[in-house]
Amino acid sequence: MSESAQHADIQKTMLAQQKSEHRKKQILNLVLLALLLVAPAVLYPVFLMKILCFALFAVAFNLLLGYTGLLSFGHAAFLASGAYTTGYLLSNYSGLTTEMGILAGTAVATLLGLGFAVVAIRRQGIYFAMITLALAQLMFFFFVQSEFTGGEDGLHGVPRGYLFGFIDLSDNMNMYYFVLAVFLASYLLVQRVVSSPFGQVLKAIKQNEPRAISLGYNVNQYKLLAFVMSSGLAGLAGSLKTVVFQLASLNDAHWHLSGEVILMTLIGGTGTLLGPVVGATFVVNLEYQLSQGPLGDWVDAILGAIFVLTVIAFRSGIIGEVQKFMRKNLS
């Protein structure tokens, strides 16, 4: 066999492999989707919605950490700004349909993200983390002192209202499928973004920023866009959460939540699409199970310990480890 024929052969098998891998992924996605569709028949819908909201939050966060290499320690600010905006609008303007309130919350979070990004992308690495943390703390004080947030009390009894004016969201099943639809749409959007040429540049920035600069990319513009997108989606997660729980409070703005979303993403697997979803499911579930048992008071300490363990022992997260395992044993 000539060398070029051999080469073509290898290419063919590689293509076939890629195709079969792609098919496997598609099947996996369909199975997951089917599970999500029937889940509320078995599990409590509000609990599932909580998982979906935090999964969306983590997916948004991962767009920055996993695909752009920027560690934001202030993502709670976006979740909270979405949550408060939606909560305030739906509580005070009964004419608004629910999706309008959610859109407004997302828009406010996106704008806030733009403000954060303009300041924070001036520094890199750990400085970036410190700056976002400080800015989020600034927002926290703003939320504490503002009237529209209800201060220490927060906003209670936010009406879920009617989607598009006629779908009653006070019904948990309607609410669940709405949240699921928004989650899936956002997930697909992120998938689209990271596999687009734009997403490739983001990955290049993550891997080697000076190189990306020398190749002529305006790195700061890419970072800015990624940051704004991520904060907008985080705000969307916050808006949804407010509608589901009919509540927006200072917990949404606390740095603790910014840390938690990092843990979710890290434990699921940074830089993978499914990782943050798995991580959010894990963390929300763990917190729920712990709060039921005798270890209820130890949640913080246990989360901290998991943080330490994850960083030391398995930095690639659950999905990352599974991928490694599959590559080793199944190919």
Partner: peptide, 12 residues
């Protein structure tokens, strides 16, 4: 992140 986890543990 490691030191953050340590801080959470100690505080918790």
């Amino acid at each position: 992140l490691l030191t953050f986890g340590v801080a959470l543990m100690i505080q918790g």
